[in-house]
Design a protein around this nucleic acid. Structure first.
Lengths: 129, 129
DNA sequence: GCTTGACCTGGAGCGCACTCCAGCTCTTAC
DNA sequence: GTAAGAGCTGGAGTGCGCTCCAGGTCAAGC
């Protein structure tokens, strides 16, 4: 089973242009081509794309994703290096979640404040900032 | 108490250039100037900057921050609109946290997988993608 | 056999959020 | 009074991650 680029785009949630872009910058291997020279993505290609989108979503820079993709070509010899990248990235993601959570508290505080202001009729007594 | 731009940069965690940039794009009001024409930031300015950095950290686009800053000038009349922005943004942040969490599971799965591979001596039997 | 539509390539363009630069002024310390 | 250093302005440049475009090919349906 293979997929034309439009279908691969649909399934991966990326645009057609982005798929070709990812290929150009060597994030993904050039997929097979059909008789007419068109890209034919396999399920394996899609699985890799799916994983890449997870890395992107979590904010991994494309440079590092490329590094990871490069290591992948070296097979089992690079397992340690790849694991290292993912473990470090996991730390980044956890830190990011914590950061968001801490900002959330500020947001909550501000929102509560607005509720107090509009709840009461005391005008013009807004807390600065 | 006022602060020179270098000190304001230090305290806000932004760069001097970014402070001037934020002023240019009307994210912050032009601060007072000292006798020599140099910017003199107040504690209130810093408090606003501090809040802005929270919004930035949580991924609010600068356009929306500008809108928020604009509303702020309208005083109490805009409290509803400002609250609305923050409430919507809070939803975005919560959704983002959930997204990160879900990606974390994929990451964990991959890392465990790598641990199985390098733990056993079975080479070349890597799960695709 | 001709139109239509998906796909192809190489390369240019874009939006965002800064970041840097040249050339100037102003204060402070010697 | 002069040299150093912080700050000033307007404007150009940067890096990232796409996104768009022109001009062409190819296969399928009428």
């Amino acid at each position: 089973m293979t997929y034309a680029i439009a279908e691969a785009a649909h399934r991966s949630g990326l645009s057609i242009d982005t798929l070709r872009y990812y290929e150009r910058i060597e994030l993904i291997d050039p997929p097979a081509r059909d008789s007419g020279g068109r890209r034919a993505y396999t399920d394996e290609d899609l699985a890799w794309l799916h994983f890449l989108t997870k890395l992107r979503t979590t904010g991994m820079p494309i440079k590092l994703m490329r590094e990871y993709a490069r290591l992948r070509h070296q097979g089992v010899a690079s397992v340690g290096a790849r694991k290292h990248i993912l473990v470090r990235h996991r730390e980044d993601v956890l830190a990011r979640i914590e950061e968001l959570r801490s900002c959330l508290q500020v947001l909550n505080y501000k929102i509560e404040n607005y509720e107090r202001i509009s709840g009461s009729e005391q005008d013009r007594q807004e807390v600065p900032a």
